[in-house]
Design a binder for these strands. Structure first.
Lengths: 193, 193
DNA sequence: CGTCATCTTGATTACGCTCAAGCTCCGTGG
DNA sequence: CCACGGAGCTTGAGCGTAATCAAGATGACG
C-alpha cells in the first residue's frame, strides 16, 4: 500500500487542476503546495516536511500545485484509500466532509489575505456570500467591523471600497446600506482571478 | 442525537480556549468564529450559515470563539461523535488527523496573513520551522521568493526583515544566509502574540 | 573568468491605516 | 412630540508600512 517516488528540485508532483488520483506523504526533503492567480501572483499554502501528508482532496481535482524544494522522497497513495471517509450518508462521513469544506475555505481565504488588494477582497467576499445564500440580493448578517476583520482590512477601507463599487454601478444598496444587490456580477468575477 | 439551542445577537456559543465538549451545526441565523491577539487584533476565520458545521476540534480546546451575529438556532453534538474518526491506529484515522492538522495550520496562517506585520510574520515563520524541525538551527529548504509567497510579502521585505532581526542579535546566519540560527527565542515569541 | 540566479540594499511610491469629523438611524426620556 | 445620545457607518486628510523600481553584492556553474 503506497508507492515510493523521488523528485528533484523544482520538479512538479502535481499541478493545480490535475485529477486527484493520488495523495502523498513526505518521506524526506520538503514540498511546497501553492495556487496562482491569472496574473502570476502566488500564494504558498504550506511547506510539507517529512511525515506530512499533502494533496488530500475530496473533490476530483487538485486545488494546488505541488513542487519539490530539493531532492525529495514521497509515498503516493491511491485516492481510493479516502473514499471510505466521506462516503455520503452516515454522520461521520458528513463530519469529514464538513472538515474538508472548512479546509477548502481556509485555503482559498489565504490567497485572498496574502495576495489580493482591497477591492478584490470585497469582490470575492460578496460573490461568495451571494453563492452561499443563492441570491444576488444580500442581507448582510454581519457588521462592517466583522467584514473588516474577516478580510484583513479596516472598517474605513471596507466602507470606502463598497462606496466605490456603488459609484461604478457594480453593486447597489438598500435599507441603511445593510443590504447589497449585485448589479454587475461579471465585473466582480473579473476581479476574482 | 444533538440538542437544539438558541442564542441572541452577540451571544457567545463558546470561547477561545474552552474545552471542546461539543461541536455545532447552524440551523438558522449566522455565526462568526474568530481568534484574538493579545492586543485586540482580531481575525474572523469564517461566517457560518444554515447547514454549516463549526467548532469541530481534534484537540481538547476550541481554538476560536464563536458568537451569534443575530438570533440563531444551532444543534449541538457531543464531541464523542468525533472520537470514532481520528481513533489513532488505522490509516483512515491518520488521514483525518492529517486533514485536521492542515486545517489548524491554515486557520492560524489566516491570522498571520490578515493581521500581522512583516516582522511578526517572519518571527512566526521561523518559530514554526524551528519547532517542526526540532532545532534552533534552521537550514532553509526554500528560497526567499517561496518565503515571501507564503507570508504574503515580497522578497525585498523578507530580506530586509531578516537583516533587521540579525542586527538586533535575535537571529544569526550561516553559509550564504541559507541557514538561520535562532539566538533569542523569547524575543521572537514575544512578537508572536 | 564570465554569466546568471539569488539575495541584499537603497530610493521612491502607493495602498490602506490612523486619526478625526460628520451623518443616519435608533431608542430613550423629558 | 421632539431633544438627546449613542452605535454604526461614511467621508476626508495625512501618514506609515511594505511594494515597487533600481542597483549592487555574493555565490554557483559552465
Amino acid at each position: 500500500m503506497g508507492v515510493t517516488q523521488m523528485f528533484d528540485k523544482e520538479e512538479e508532483i502535481f499541478a493545480e487542476g490535475d485529477r486527484a488520483t493520488c495523495f502523498y506523504k513526505v518521506v524526506s526533503g520538503a514540498i511546497r503546495t501553492s495556487k496562482l492567480l491569472s496574473d502570476g501572483r502566488r500564494q504558498i499554502d504550506a511547506f510539507h516536511l517529512p511525515g506530512d501528508f499533502f494533496g488530500i482532496e475530496l473533490g476530483r481535482e487538485h486545488r494546488f500545485s505541488a513542487e519539490a524544494l530539493g531532492k525529495v522522497t514521497v509515498v503516493a497513495y491511491r485516492r481510493g484509500a479516502l473514499e471510505a471517509l466521506n462516503s455520503g450518508s452516515d454522520f461521520s462521513g458528513q463530519i469529514v466532509s464538513a472538515m474538508m469544506h472548512s479546509l477548502e475555505r481556509a485555503q482559498s481565504h489565504m490567497m485572498l489575505l496574502g495576495r489580493k488588494c482591497a477591492t478584490e477582497r470585497i469582490a470575492e467576499f460578496l460573490l461568495n456570500l451571494a453563492e452561499r445564500l443563492d441570491d444576488d440580493h444580500i442581507d448582510l448578517p454581519m457588521s462592517r467591523i466583522d467584514i473588516a476583520d474577516h478580510l484583513g482590512l479596516t472598517i474605513e477601507t471596507v466602507s470606502r471600497t463598497l462606496t466605490h463599487l456603488q459609484r461604478e454601478g457594480i453593486i447597489g444598496f438598500e435599507e441603511r446600506r445593510r443590504t447589497i444587490i449585485l448589479k454587475n456580477r461579471p465585473a466582480l468575477e473579473a476581479m476574482n482571478d
